[in-house]
Design a protein around this nucleic acid. Structure first.
Length: 510
RNA sequence: GCGGCUGUAGUCUAGCCUGGUUAGGACUCGAGCCUUCCAAGCUCGUAACCCGGGUUCAAAUCCCGGCGGCCGCACCA
């Protein structure tokens, strides 16, 4: 089955990466020292965009909802958490390399294939022994295989001064688990009854073997995750479903992929997809719709989005059904975020490993239940870069190419730029006081350096929607020109109309 | 992690082959002049040879090692 190309060698991609670095929005971390592959820092404009996307998400999914509670968990956790979640095991890939063709294989898979036994839970030394005993060689060209090398994708550290086995700890590879470990406390404190969700934003860490493709696969990244808890017998009892039943979106189903139609998507409403049982549960369908609506609200064009169902062999160890929201990158459809049905896997595991009761008493059915979970999981960095790709445009003027980032105003790095037409005759002083006043309510960029055209171009490039220019008329009658980034058209308005104009285009979050 | 290519200011690059330059340019950035609205012009300025060894009187240049980057393989909850 042909996978979408992983390779990124596209000019749009290159242009946006270049813009990110050149304008200091997103750039390699600690670049003055080497060895920092897979880590990226955000500069002034980048961090504003990031905070706004995050704030928009938090507002939409947490503050605007009755059925959601927020929390923030720790990054460093004891091993128990990750043993229960299955990550200690499934993050350890035992790899061997063929001495002839240099190809790499999963040692456990080779042994399982050759001996028709399960090696689940066996220590690596045992697997190595089996490989030797049965003289397992490269399946491609019978070449000799190397010793097993273990790749642990979790960052390990130690708690306290003594670094021995008892003090081991991990940097979390996903934020989700903290929601499960804290589930009972957050439920008690928020006094939410099923169904309800817990949301969290934070950093996660994966020690990728080969980080690549800018922020698409990095070692430290931000996640925005929701675990939505549902009574196991009420997965289709979804009162809010009507709100998204009309969301039309392209879908690529398992059935289509089985036929090899990986790049196709049938445009269908999410409600219909559920009615046809393409989507397993009503609550899953609901979250697919809610997620698409939010992604559209921060400016992503729906025609560049589609839902793709994971095939059975793609499903992770905890999931029974997963849908990815994919974006139509110029190098192919690729995962932007995922919505998994985790069942009660995690709460059950934590109950087993910790010995604590993770069930809730349901007042309606008078029974103790371990809730099922639908998990919408967003990668923030990837999303931001996708927003930049989606917003990137070029305008040719006088044989010169200008970059205009047509970001939604709600996620732009500033609400408004304020420029004096020139520095002299008191224009700069006036502009400065206008900027100071606007700063009380908005994110403002003030700039008096260079020609006016250059200053417009500078803010176009990072996506600021409005530019207010103070000129001689301002001193006379208190009017300014306000310029729209996308049309470069200007309009003369009164000073006190500026906030109204900005708010019209910006949902104010956070 | 393996293979191929590659590394000069914030960005793009000249110079490298054939060792000796105050390492040049353009854009950006900063200061100033000019300018009554879209990267104009002028003056001045800041800023670079990835790191470490070696060869040599002399290394951006040649050699070795390391580190980074890109591409391919592999990996990817």
């Amino acid at each position: 089955m042909a996978k979408p190309k992983d390779k990124i060698e596209d000019s749009l991609y290159t242009k946006v990466v270049n813009l990110c670095v050149r304008r200091g929005m997103i750039f390699p971390s600690c670049d003055i020292y080497a060895g920092t592959g897979g880590f990226f820092d955000y500069g002034p404009a980048g961090v504003e965009i990031k905070r706004r996307v995050e704030a928009s998400w938090w507002n939409y999914f947490v503050r605007q909802r009755e059925d959601m509670a927020g929390m923030e968990g720790c990054i460093v956790n004891p091993p128990g958490v990750w043993k229960a979640s299955g990550h200690v095991e499934s993050f350890n890939d035992p790899l061997v390399e063929c001495s002839k063709c240099k190809k790499r294989f999963r040692a456990d898979h080779l042994v399982e294939g050759a001996l028709k036994i399960s090696v689940d839970g066996l220590p690596l030394s045992k697997v190595q022994e089996l490989m030797k005993q049965h003289k397992i060689v490269c399946p491609d060209d019978k070449g000799e295989l190397s010793e097993i090398k273990s790749f642990n994708l979790m960052f390990k550290t130690h708690i306290g001064a003594v670094a021995d086995e008892t003090s081991e700890a991990y940097l979390r590879p996903e934020t989700a688990q903290l929601i499960f470990t804290d589930f009972k406390t957050v439920q008690m404190a928020s006094r939410k009854q099923l169904p309800f969700g817990i949301a969290q934003v934070g950093k996660s860490f994966r020690n990728e073997i080969a980080p690549r493709n800018f922020v698409f696969r990095c070692r430290e990244f931000s996640q925005m995750e929701i675990e939505y808890f549902i009574h196991p017998k009420k997965l289709d009892d979804c009162p809010l479903f009507d709100g998204v039943k009309n969301v039309l979106i392209g879908m690529c189903t398992q059935a289509m992929q089985a036929k090899g139609e990986n790049d196709k998507a049938e445009v269908i409403s999410i409600g219909d997809a559920y009615a046809k049982k393409v989507i397993g549960t009503r609550w899953h369908a609901y979250w697919l719709g809610a997620v698409i609506e939010w992604l559209a609200s921060v400016g992503l064009r729906k025609e560049n989005l589609r839902l793709r169902q994971h095939t059975k062999d793609e499903l992770s160890h905890y999931s029974s059904e997963t849908w990815d929201v994919e974006y139509k990158y110029s190098w192919g459809w690729k995962e932007l975020m995922g919505i998994a049905n985790r069942g009660n896997f995690d709460l059950s595991q934590h109950s087993k490993f910790s010995g604590k009761d993770m069930s809730l008493f349901d007042e309606e059915t008078k029974e103790k239940v371990i809730p099922f979970v639908i998990e919408p999981s967003f990668g923030l960095d990837r999303l931001i870069f996708t927003l930049l790709l989606d917003a990137y445009s070029e305008r040719v003027e006088k044989e010169e190419t200008r970059i205009v980032l047509q970001l939604d105003a709600s996620v732009a790095p500033a609400d408004v730029a304020v420029f004096p037409l020139m520095k002299k005759d008191g224009l700069a002083e006036k502009a400065d006081s206008v900027a100071k006043e606007l700063r009380k309510s908005f994110v403002v960029i003030y700039d008096e350096a260079g020609s006016i055209g250059k200053r417009y171009a500078r803010v176009d490039e990072i996506g600021v929607k409005w530019a207010v220019t103070i000129d001689y008329d301002t001193l006379e009658d208190g009017t300014v020109t306000i310029r729209d980034r996308d049309t470069s058209q200007q309009e003369r308005i009164k000073l006190d109309e500026i906030p109204v104009r900005i708010r019209k285009s910006t949902r104010s979050f956070g």
